[in-house]
């Protein structure tokens, strides 16, 4: 047996538990770098919203008046919101990759708490969500889009805050789907929801039946809230607020449920 001297011994009593469940800046920095390195995420969150704006938002009907501005402005908000939602969703849904690669299990051999892990995912999601908002709003300055200065600012903030709800959606899906490419399933689903939620197809332009259906889908509430500084046409505040509360509860509840299941000590 190896002879041990006091010098080379490891003293168990001198060790401490890290603060904040292991949450730290290095962890956040590396997580962000990972997210930014993902080319597919970058295409869907940055290139697509900008391309959509030029293709649909800045089209000939872009000059048509709507609320305090015009349709082009409506689409700036819409596509920034779409980009931000895809960003937060995919950053959070990366838990599915980590589960399938055994990284989650590896993390259980470290002091990192489940809460700290989720916090990192959400913070990364929010930072990533900022990028499409900044980019689409910058690009929006060049075309036909027109609304009051205050509406530009408040809608941008609401877009970003609203996208947070989809970090919960991403976590829920990431824990639900046992696959390395959860986003391949979620991506098309989100595009579908964006049509329903008045993002790809402006809510004010929908027929009344279509509007009733739209009100039940998860992107609708956030979309109405984000468009509020431009137009509140035909929608009561409690309607979109209720939509947000219900869907947020479902997403957060689902994420917590799946997370507990995943990390339960057997």
């Amino acid at each position: 047996m190896t002879t041990l001297t006091p010098e080379n011994r490891i003293d168990a009593a001198s060790r401490t538990v890290p603060p904040r469940g292991g949450l730290n800046v290095t962890l956040l920095r590396i997580e962000l770098r990972r997210v930014l390195r993902n080319r597919r995420t970058m295409i869907f969150t940055l290139l697509m919203p900008v391309a959509f704006y030029f293709a649909f938002g800045n089209a000939e009907y872009g000059d048509d008046r709507l609320g305090a501005g015009n349709y082009a402005a409506y689409s700036v908000i819409s596509f920034a919101l779409y980009g931000a939602m895809v960003a937060t969703t995919s950053a959070a849904a990366s838990v599915s990759v980590e589960r399938s690669q055994g990284w989650s299990r590896q993390l259980r051999l470290t002091p990192l708490s489940g809460f700290a892990y989720i916090t990192v995912k959400v913070v990364a999601a929010m930072v990533l969500g900022l990028l499409p908002v900044a980019l689409v709003y910058a690009v929006g300055q060049t075309g036909k889009a027109e609304m009051p200065g205050s509406a530009w600012i408040t809608s941008a903030v609401l877009v970003w805050a609203g996208a947070l709800m989809f970090a919960a959606f991403g976590l829920f899906m990431g824990y639900l789907l046992p696959t390395e490419n959860a986003m391949q399933v979620i991506g098309p689903l989100m595009a579908f929801l964006a049509f329903g939620g008045g993002i790809f197809y402006p809510y004010p332009a929908m027929g009344s039946t279509m509007q009733h259906v739209a009100q039940l889908t998860p992107m609708w509430g956030v979309s109405m809230m984000a468009h509020l500084p431009l137009t509140a046409e035909g929608v009561q505040a409690w309607q979109w607020a209720l939509n947000i509360v219900v869907w947020l509860t479902i997403f957060v509840g689902g994420a917590v449920w799946r997370f507990r299941r995943d990390t339960r000590r057997v």
Binding site: R15, P18, P19, V25, R37, N38, W103, T110
Partner: peptide
């Protein structure tokens, strides 16, 4: 462990740095 427990999109140094950051 025998298999798994690594993130393919990190570099070797990042993986080790990240692991170290979690401990006091």
């Amino acid at each position: 462990m025998q298999t798994g427990g690594l993130l393919k999109d990190l570099t070797v140094a990042e993986t080790v740095e990240l692991t170290g950051s979690l401990f006091s």
